[in-house]
Computed example of a mutant assay.
Amino acid sequence: MTDTPPGTVADAQAGNWVDRHAPQWLKPYARLARWDRPIGIWLLWWPCIWGLALAAVAQPQAGFDWIAAILMLVGAALMRGAGCTFNDIVDRDIDDKVARTRSRPIPSGQVTARDALYFMVGQALVASAILFQFNRFTVWAGVASLVLVAIYPFMKRITWWPQAFLGLAFSYGALVGWSSQTGSLGWALVLLYAGTVLWVIGYDTLYALQDIEDDALIGVKSTARLFGEHVKLAVAVLYTGAYLLWMAAVLLVNGGIVFAVLALVAAGLMAWQVWTVDAAQPDNPRLRFYSNHYVGLALALALLAEWVW
């Protein structure tokens, strides 16, 4: 890996807006919250949009709630930032031993763990103010998700499936989006959520390929290490399961051909990721991981088109 310029982080894209434009005092905190890598915000937000859009397909007379979508985008940015900050506090000793992460603000000494904790609480409090704009069921569902957020950073130490716990947490937006419109759960939501969990496990397995050698040296577990030479097949199975569950969710709310056709774009992107991923090539897994933003966009547009139809 090439040397990282002082003050920056190795796993952020060079020349990002935080490095170029953020005030000097803000930069370490912006990097803690991953504002220099907005991909995580999108990946947390897209399931919210899917939940909102699936609810619109289920009850077309109510329409798509655009105000809720905007609120959830802000909430996703805040909760992703709070979650990443908490993850960095918990993982500061591990991050110091991994080439890709040792330049992060806490292990590099730019921010103390105590100040990071204050920053995390501040983000969570603002996010809670947004959550309280929704119905009581959605509020309690959002509060319950904090359990998953809290335990995820520890899972890489005790199980080969930390990606599954990330999937449970990062897919929670589907539940929030759906319940904000319906005030309840439903089988269509269960299928959407399960498919999204499989999708997250798949894309985070590809992302974990970047750290597979360092993880093996320090004893950190991941599905990338677990699947080993069968990682392509395993991710293909996960992505196929995700697509089938998404299809089943839409069929359950009387959706059909419009979604089925347009969702093939998302399926094609996932197939491309699996076909072309190569951990031996620098940046290859990261770029495949990043392309899931477009998977999320394609599926959202497919659901919205189904609602319009």
Rank of each mutant, 00 (worst) to 15 (best):
T2D: 12
T2W: 12
P5G: 04
A10W: 11
D11G: 04
A14Y: 13
D19L: 14
D19I: 13
Y29A: 09
D36K: 08
W42H: 11
L44W: 04
W45R: 07
I49T: 08
A55H: 01
A55K: 01
V57P: 00
V57A: 02
P60D: 02
A62D: 11
A62L: 13
W66P: 00
I70Y: 01
L71Y: 08
A77N: 00
G83F: 12
V90L: 12
D93R: 12
I94M: 11
K97S: 04
R104M: 12
P105E: 12
I106F: 05
V111F: 10
T112H: 10
D115T: 11
A116L: 11
L125I: 15
L125E: 02
V126I: 15
V126A: 03
A127Y: 12
L131R: 11
F132N: 08
F132V: 15
F132K: 07
Q133A: 14
F134Y: 02
G142C: 02
L146E: 07
V147Y: 14
V149N: 10
Y152D: 09
F154S: 06
K156F: 04
T159K: 01
W160V: 11
P162M: 10
G167I: 13
F170E: 04
Y172M: 14
G173A: 13
V176D: 03
V176P: 00
W178K: 09
W178F: 11
T182C: 04
T182P: 00
S184G: 02
L189Y: 01
V190K: 00
L192Y: 02
Y193R: 12
V197T: 10
V197Q: 12
V200P: 00
G202A: 13
T205A: 03
T205D: 05
A208H: 09
L209K: 03
L209S: 03
D215M: 10
A216M: 05
V220N: 07
K221R: 06
A224R: 07
F227V: 00
E229R: 10
E229L: 09
H230V: 04
A234R: 08
V235D: 02
A236H: 14
Y239E: 03
T240H: 07
A242G: 04
A242S: 10
L244M: 14
V253F: 07
V253Q: 02
G255F: 03
G256N: 13
F259W: 13
V261P: 00
V265E: 04
G268E: 06
G268F: 13
L269K: 12
Q273K: 08
Q273L: 09
A279D: 04
A280Q: 14
Q281N: 06
P282K: 08
D283P: 01
N284T: 13
N284R: 05
N284S: 10
P285S: 12
F289S: 01
Y290Q: 14
Y294V: 09
A298S: 09
L299D: 02
L301P: 00
L304K: 05
W307D: 01
V308E: 10
W309K: 00
